[in-house]
Structures are given as structure tokens and as C-alpha cells.
Amino acid sequence: MSDRLDLDNPFRAEAYISAGSGEHKRIRHLLIGLHEAIIQTINDLYALGYARPDEWSEIIPAPNYPPGVMMSILSRYTEIRV
């Protein structure tokens, strides 16, 4: 297990780290749709104060979807309180 968060790599294998009184668990938000809809949703979430646009992955073609369907991922870590 790693002792630091790798926020630059949304596909990193480690999802848990020990920290203080609980554990941090990674959660991923996945947007799938038309390029314009993804950009609008990212901007809407930014306007709500949830995530900056630069925190999202590059918009890429979504695997196993029809041509033109794109995707972007946001990884966040949340503390699991025990």
C-alpha cells in the first residue's frame, strides 16, 4: 500500500490508504455522453463548487459505446469513518 494519494492518476490500483482514525476510499465519478454534454456537466459541477474542471480526466472515447460517445473521470477520496 502507498502512503500518499496519487491524485494525478485516476486509474491507480490502490484505492485504500491508512490515515488517522479511518481509511480513505477512492470513489470515481464517470461522465459518459456527448462531448458537449460532458463539458457542460463539468462546468455545472464547478459552478456548484464541487470540482474544478482541471480535476477531471481528459475527455476520451468511451470504450464499448457507439462512436461519438465520450467519457471523463473524476477521482475523489473520502474518509470511511469507523
Rank of each mutant, 00 (worst) to 15 (best):
S2E: 13
A15S: 09
F11Q: 05
I59G: 05
E79Q: 15
P53I: 13
I17G: 00
G33Y: 04
G22M: 03
A15Q: 14
Y65W: 02
L7I: 02
R76Q: 15
I32A: 00
E55P: 01
M71P: 01
D8P: 00
H24E: 13
I42E: 10
T41Q: 15
P63K: 05
P61L: 05
L30I: 14
A62W: 03
R28C: 12
I59F: 11
S72K: 02
F11V: 01
D3M: 09
E79L: 14
S21W: 06
I59M: 09
E23M: 08
E58H: 08
T78N: 06
S21K: 11
H29G: 02
P61R: 05
N9V: 05
P67D: 10
Q40E: 15
H29F: 10
L45Q: 11
A47I: 02
R81H: 13
W56N: 01
Y65N: 06
W56Y: 12
S57Y: 12
I73W: 13
H29V: 10
G20F: 09
M1F: 08
A62R: 01
L74G: 06
A19R: 11
S57R: 05
D6N: 10
I32M: 05
L7D: 03
W56M: 01
E14T: 11
G33R: 01
S57W: 09
L45N: 07
L7Q: 01
G20H: 06
P67A: 08
E14D: 15
L34N: 07
L34G: 06
I42K: 13
V69N: 00
A51M: 06
P63Q: 05
A19S: 15
P66T: 09
L30F: 03
I59V: 13
M1Q: 04
D54H: 13
V82G: 11
P53E: 14
G22H: 07
D54R: 10
E36K: 10
I39P: 05
D44Q: 15
R81Q: 14
S18C: 02
V69F: 04
Y50M: 07
S21N: 13
Y46G: 08
Y16K: 04
L30N: 01
I17E: 07
M1P: 06
I27L: 09
L5Y: 06
L30A: 01
I60C: 01
F11M: 02
R26N: 03
H29I: 07
E58A: 10
A47M: 11
Y65R: 14
M71R: 07
I38Q: 10
I17R: 12
L30S: 00
Y16R: 12
D8M: 06
P10N: 02
D8L: 03
M71K: 09
E36L: 07
A15N: 11
D54M: 06
Y50A: 11
A19Y: 14
D54A: 12
E14I: 03
W56Q: 02
S2V: 04
A15Y: 10
G49N: 11
Q40P: 01
S2K: 06
L31K: 04
H29R: 05
P63T: 04
P67M: 00
